[in-house]
């Protein structure tokens, strides 16, 4: 049996005003895998990521064409529900952005907004989510203290826990470790490997080592085009396009 891709993206084009940020990007993202997107700054990889949960909708003066299907359904269809989409496809931001509230309230935000869980179940869900983000042992006794008192690395894992609490299918990560120190980065990468068992992950990263360490597939973006997309191993050992090779060997970018 062949696996159905989680995301099927066909001929995606994206404009900020008059500037075209993405050119005819087509890619299939497979479930329970980590897909890494690499490329120099401004190459469109973050824009691409934000198309997948329609976070670009909040930016005025943008235009999108092409098709993105999540498990067969067009997420830009007129009757598509963006809030439901964003619950299924969560986003971890570049800088940790916990709410200025307690640790517990941060994780409970999603479930409370959905209104599905309350009371004892909510406490269990918060605990499960914090465990899922490998943060529980560090914060179990300080759930009521402010989230902003955590270290940056803990804050980023808290943001991941907050995401897990709404039970998404896909986790998008936009340079999740660029604000973190090496030890915190290692922890987040370990976490990504664990999360892969249950979730589909797409990660944008500036660190080629990170892409090589954690991902199953790697896509190389350059000037808004997807230059090459393949198994991570292949990309880093036998790239077929010369641009890719030049980038990963550090000759430009």
């Amino acid at each position: 049996m062949t696996l159905q891709p989680t995301f099927q993206i066909e001929m995606l084009n994206f404009h900020y005003g008059a500037t075209q940020a993405l050119h005819n990007v087509s890619i299939d993202i497979m479930p329970r895998e980590i897909t890494a997107l690499i490329g120099p700054s401004g190459c469109g990889k973050s824009t691409f990521l934000r198309c997948l949960n329609r976070m670009n909708d909040t930016i005025p003066d943008t235009e999108i064409s092409g098709r993105i299907r999540l498990e067969g359904r067009d997420i830009y269809a007129p009757d598509a529900d963006t809030t439901e989409l964003r619950q299924r496809v969560g986003l971890v931001f570049q800088r940790p952005n916990p709410f200025p509230q307690s640790i517990f309230d941060n994780v409970a935000f999603g479930p409370r907004v959905l209104g599905t869980v309350s009371g004892r179940n909510l406490q269990e869900l918060v605990e499960d989510s914090l465990r899922g983000a490998a943060l529980w042992d560090e914060v179990a006794t300080t759930l009521t203290s402010p989230a902003l008192s955590l270290s940056l690395g803990q804050q980023q894992r808290l943001c991941i826990a907050r995401l897990l609490a709404v039970k998404p299918d896909v986790i998008l990560m936009d340079e999740p470790c660029s604000a973190l120190d090496p030890i915190a980065t290692t922890k987040v990468e370990e976490l990504m490997r664990q999360l892969k068992e249950q979730y589909t992950i797409v990660v944008v990263t500036h660190s080629m080592q990170q892409a090589a360490r954690v991902s199953d597939k790697t896509g190389f973006f350059w000037l808004g085009e997807l230059v090459e997309f393949d198994e991570t191993n292949t990309i880093f050992t036998r790239p077929t396009v010369q641009r890719t090779e030049e980038y990963i060997t550090g000759r430009f970018g």
Partner: peptide
């Protein structure tokens, strides 16, 4: 970033 975080979690 607060607003983005809330929206990205599926809040209206």
């Amino acid at each position: 970033s607060y607003r983005d975080a809330a929206l990205a979690l599926g809040a209206t």
